[in-house]
Simulated scan of single mutants.
Amino acid sequence: MTAVKVRVAQGTPCWVSLMAHDLEGAKAFYGPLLGWDFTPGPAELGCYVRASLHGAKVAGIGVAQAEPALPVEWTTYFAVDSADEVSARVRECGGTVAVGPLQSESAGRLAIAADLSGAFFGLWEGQEHLGWEVVGEPGAPVWNELVTNDEPLAATFYGSVLGRTVVEADPSALARGDEEATLQVDGHRVAGLRQTTDLRDGPPRWRVYFAVTDTDLTAGQTKMLGGSVLVAPYDTPYGRVARLADPEGGRFSVVRLP
């Protein structure tokens, strides 16, 4: 596998990062589960490592510096041309900028924000580090989807903040279980927005999907490594999916592509 280092257009998910309480525990879980190796990340981010798949960067894991009672969660980062300008639009549209914008050594400039429902997401203005270097292969990210209780409001917010088009699904797509809306860049679907009242989804958040070779085997390995299966493997038009959690409760999904 060859690492691909390209700058993606604004509004495209480009990185995912987990803020854990136990960094070594997270490495011991995700390393064998997804085939990751780890290298130190920028010092400004504190205890932070980058996960690599056969040498290609795919994700980050850091240590949460805030109140230990806060839940462990994965955060989806969107590529932006200017973290400062997009952060200003977040505030103009009623969202919150919780961190930054701040410089992360020569890697890039970042901010962490929350939408109107409280779902957190990141903004990444890549410089030396442009984001993940492989997607859609086993062990790498493959999809990001907002789970929200107000999809129309979320669609307006993200469309305005990122300056991109949000397209509603047609009735036939909804019948197949597709997202209710998709964030699109240059006519391509880059992320989903899904309305839900399923209590298992928890509060509004961005859900991260990783590709795997065998969904059922990965679900079994998750339990062996101390994690849990939130929703057992099931088939979808996009492949066989399972919703899982790491030992600290960090939620993520895996999918075996068709």
Results as ranks from 00 to 15, higher is better:
Tyr30His: 11
Gly95Asn: 09
Gly25Thr: 11
Thr2Arg: 12
Thr196Cys: 02
Ala20Cys: 13
Phe29Gln: 05
Gly118Ala: 04
His129Tyr: 08
Leu225Cys: 05
Val97Thr: 03
Glu145Leu: 11
Val229Ile: 15
Leu116Gln: 09
Ala83His: 11
Val241Gln: 07
Phe121Ala: 14
Ala211Trp: 01
Leu225Asn: 04
Ala66His: 08
Thr12Tyr: 05
Ser52Cys: 04
Gln195Arg: 03
Val208Ala: 04
Gly31Arg: 11
Gly46Trp: 01
Thr156Ser: 14
Asp150Phe: 02
Gly131Thr: 08
Ala56Ile: 06
Gly192Trp: 01
Val8Lys: 03
Ala3Asp: 05
Ala242Lys: 10
Gln103Phe: 00
Pro40Glu: 06
Glu128Asn: 12
Pro42Asn: 05
Met19His: 07
Glu85Val: 08
Pro13His: 11
Glu151Thr: 13
Ala219Tyr: 02
Arg207Glu: 07
Leu146Lys: 08
Gly95Tyr: 04
Asp81Asn: 15
Gly25Met: 11
His21Lys: 14
Arg7Asn: 03
Leu162Ala: 10
Val161Pro: 09
Gly226Trp: 02
Gly163Phe: 07
Ala28Phe: 04
Asp22Asn: 12
Met1Val: 12
Arg164Asn: 08
Ala219His: 06
Pro141Gly: 09
Glu73Asp: 02
Asp246Tyr: 01
Ala28Pro: 02
Asp235Ser: 06
Asp150Gly: 04
Tyr234Asp: 09
Ala111Lys: 12
Val4Ile: 14
Ala51Gly: 15
Ala26Lys: 00
Thr215His: 01
Gly159Gln: 11
Leu23Val: 13
Ala181Trp: 11
Gly95Thr: 03
Phe38Gly: 11
Ala59His: 02
Leu70Tyr: 00
Ala83Pro: 10
Arg176Trp: 03
Gly239Ser: 07
Thr222Cys: 14
Arg176Met: 15
Thr197Lys: 10
Pro68Ala: 06
Thr39Ser: 14
Trp74Lys: 10
Gly177Ser: 03
Gly159Arg: 11
Glu145Cys: 13
Val72Cys: 02
Ser117Pro: 00
Gly250Thr: 05
Pro171Glu: 14
Ala242Glu: 07
Thr96His: 10
Thr96Trp: 01
Leu18Asn: 14
Asp186Leu: 11
Leu153Phe: 00
Gly249His: 03
Arg207His: 08
Val4Phe: 05
Glu85His: 05
Val49Ser: 14
Asp81Ala: 13
Glu128Phe: 00
Cys93Gln: 15
Ala119Gly: 03
Val49Asp: 13
Tyr234Glu: 12
His188Lys: 15
